[in-house]
Each structure stands twice: as structure tokens, then as C-alpha cells.
Amino acid sequence: MDVFTALADPTRRALLAKLQDEGECDVGELVAAHEVSQPAISRHLRVLLDAGLVSVRQHGRRRHYRVQPDGLLPLISYLTGFWDQRLTALESVLDGLKEQP
């Protein structure tokens, strides 16, 4: 799943915010913080992992999750590309207006 779809869900954004605040959490801590069932949290974490937005570290029997900032690069390049494209297109529209009488 891509980063756009992954971030479209409010629970997944809340999980990312929690991980950002705490640095690192295991599943139990995330379940306690979000009042969502453990299977649901695990599914969301799987999506975030697939999108490259979090990484996981095995510590004993527990899996610890943390934010993987590089995962956001596609979002950044889309957003910056959006405005760069738009304003470049604006310049060509304006060039067209200049040629009108």
C-alpha cells in the first residue's frame, strides 16, 4: 500500500502521532492508547510497515515500532511537485494572456 492510502486513515495517523511522541511503542501500548482492538491495531501497523512509514524491532517477545521518516518522501515530492507544476502552468497561462490584444 502506498503512503497516500496509508495516511488517509485517521487511526493510522493517530498511531503515527503516538509513535512520534513516544519514540517507540509496542502493540500493547498502542492498544491502550487508542481504544481499538489489538487485531485492528496490528492490521494498521502492517499497513504502515508496508508503506514504509514505521519500522519494527524485535525485543524479546515484543515487537517495538517507531516512525520511519523516510517513508514520507513520496508525500513530500508529490506536494512540492503539485505546486511547482501548478505555478509553472500559471506562468504559461499568463504568457498566453500577454499575446491577446
Binding site: 502521532a17 512520534q20 511522541d21 521518516p69 514520507l72 513530500i76 505546486w83
Partner: peptide, 24 residues
């Protein structure tokens, strides 16, 4: 943040550091 940052350089810089400031 990304738009502001991207606007200057079109390249993500100090991303890790930036993310550490979220919601603080």
C-alpha cells in the same frame, strides 16, 4: 511543514529532526 520546506529546496532536508517536533 513539507510544503514550506519543499518550497525552498524541493528536497527534503532534516526530515528526521523535523518529525521530532510534531505535536510538541
Amino acid at each position: 511543514q513539507f510544503l514550506r520546506m519543499g518550497w525552498r529546496s524541493l528536497i527534503a532536508k532534516n526530515l528526521t529532526e523535523l518529525l521530532h517536533t510534531i505535536d510538541r
